[in-house]
Design a protein around this nucleic acid. Structure first.
Lengths: 336, 336
DNA sequence: CAACTTCCTTGCATCGTGGTAATGACGGGC
DNA sequence: GCCCGTCATTACCACGATGCAAGGAAGTTG
């Protein structure tokens, strides 16, 4: 069995409470006590039982990070940044995958938020709409990553999707493209992300005096590589096919590159492609992919600091925090 | 504050223990008690405190999955399979990133294994060598994913790396390649994976009566996309450059594709490329990537079942479990 | 020298559950 | 009417840690 405070106390010939004092660097501990207890601690190789400590203190030092799909590169890169930052702060992150299934998402959320298991929750959700979210009573603070769905009364951290999308499309216009298509997003009312990116896309077209044709927007069930092919084929089948694609995720853009290749089109000479997220993969595609790069590092820092403040008891009203982004122009939108 | 058994008991006018009985479906509970307690449970929206339960029962229903880097697609895909399977078994997975840093890896391992936080650990390690591992006393069962490092007395689940590598190289030989290079792996003694794959590579060459030239093996610091460029440049600079690359990971293969493109070589007409891991990305590269595809689904199932058996108290001696793989021939090794 | 402060150590209670076993209630068999 | 088995509920405590405050030793002050 595991070694407990009591075992250490017995060996050192002191009270369990004194051992606890040493372990926790209590102020008044004599050097003699220090020495005795440390020796016993080392000899038995004591490790505190974090369950018991958590139960007693009401804090576990652990937060949950709930992601829709961990295999989506954007999420895994974000997770990495968060784990990295959290470990600097001495916090353990419990990553959990909700698989998009809303019931599973809710179930996990309930467990995470109500079972005293974690001190707080970072929630990145696509599938969950505001109404469902509002129905969850939370005992622990929650910070949303990405877009706020509806009017949930939670902090959230993200970038300005509208402006970033406008920049991306503007970049295509500047490079001489006129018939720019947008790809990505579903009809689901909870898909706030695609709504905002579509808004930015249209704003850029209008600002340049270009028409916003309905046929130039192709929806996709999700944001993954495999979802792009159908959309691209539909766009290319039109009598006036696009000369540029603005994809709402890098994965969609990469799926599009593949489909364009199969259709015999060359990027960027025949058609430009721009993505969103700047996942690492995009630097290695042929051609390399132009993308909007959200500052993931800053998202992680900001989200964690906000969550920590809430856990410490901050009582400000919910805030919408925006972090920076960059447009990274690479080969896929740069004529050679 | 959170609702406890006591609160529910007070409302229902029964003892806390009776509430516990209802919550845990104890055998002898009268319908009247059932009704009373359920009503109170619903009214207060009771959720059990999992810390207290875990402390009392000595089981938490949670396992840890320790990965070197979550942004490596192979690991995130494996994590996905494991989370999926575990949730069917009613187990929560706590994914944690060790970042390869051996001290961090050890620290996390210690915490995970000694703090009663989790019932078991799935450990996928590259950086940690057998000696260090042997030094960790584990209070909970551990199952290794991937290659066993040295002679640690732990179960491990993986594929037959030697045979898989031989198959991959044989495939290149069959398609008419003679000067086949291998890319990937470091000098670290703990890098068992590259050692086994190199062994299979050489076995295939010997079996075909081809020489195994030293200059045709290029090491890389890690297995990521960005690590391939230097290796590829070195290989191409040789007076007799290779006509095929066998990369020890898909990410390396993808980095190689990129570098070959920059060097003006065409795949597969000028040079073939084969990877290892079959990450999703490999189906979308141009050209799509031939790869060894370990059965990740089966790895997840086998690893979880083995771990569960250990947790339940199985006392068999450590086993090396091998699961299947497939060679998926795609464009990067198929002359058009 | 009493009264008080400062330093160190410890006992007790408690966090929220669930295991163990005692207590009661009830009905059936003799 | 008594004993016993089955069913239902409960009291008590332990899981392993820490908050609280009491208690004692040592030193300081008036």
């Amino acid at each position: 069995m595991a070694v407990t405070l009591r075992d250490v106390a017995a060996l050192a010939g002191v009270s369990p409470r004194s051992v606890s004092n040493v372990v926790n660097d209590f102020r008044y501990v004599s050097p003699a006590m220090q020495a005795k207890v440390r020796a016993a601690l080392d000899e038995l190789d004591y490790k505190p039982n974090l369950l018991a400590r958590g139960l007693r203190q009401g804090r576990t030092g652990t937060i949950a990070l709930l992601l829709p799909e961990i295999t989506v590169a954007y999420f895994s890169e974000l997770a990495h940044e968060i784990v990295e930052r959290a470990s600097q702060l001495g916090i353990t992150v419990m990553i959990d995958e909700t698989s998009g299934a809303p019931n599973r998402e809710l179930a996990l959320l309930e467990v995470a938020m109500r079972s005293s298991w974690v001190d707080g929750v970072l929630l990145s959700t696509l599938g969950l709409n505001g109404a469902a979210l509002a129905g969850v009573k939370s005992d622990v603070p929650v910070v949303l990553l990405g877009e706020r769905t509806a009017k949930s009364a939670l902090d959230h951290v993200g970038i300005d999707n509208v402006r970033a999308s406008r920049d991306a499309v503007q970049h295509l216009i500047d490079s001489g493209r006129h018939r720019i298509a947008a790809i990505g997003g579903s009809h689901a009312p909870s898909d706030m992300t695609s709504r905002l990116r579509l808004k930015g896309y249209r704003a850029a077209l209008r600002a340049a005096g270009l028409p916003t044709e309905d046929y130039l927007y192709a929806r996709t069930p999700k944001y993954r590589r495999g979802d792009a092919a159908v959309a691209v084929r539909a766009l290319l089948a039109h009598p006036e096919p696009p000369d540029a694609l603005f994809c709402f995720s890098d994965e969609l853009a990469i799926g599009s590159l593949r489909e364009l290749y199969e259709q015999g089109l060359r990027v960027p000479s025949d058609i430009s492609v721009v993505g969103f997220d700047d996942i690492e993969e995009s630097r290695f595609t042929t051609p390399s992919l132009t993308s909007i790069s959200p500052d993931k590092h800053q998202i992680a820092s900001t989200a964690l600091e906000t969550l920590m403040a809430r856990i410490a008891g901050s009582d400000l009203r919910p805030r919408a925090l925006q972090v920076g982004y960059q447009l990274l122009a690479r080969e896929s939108s740069t004529r050679q």
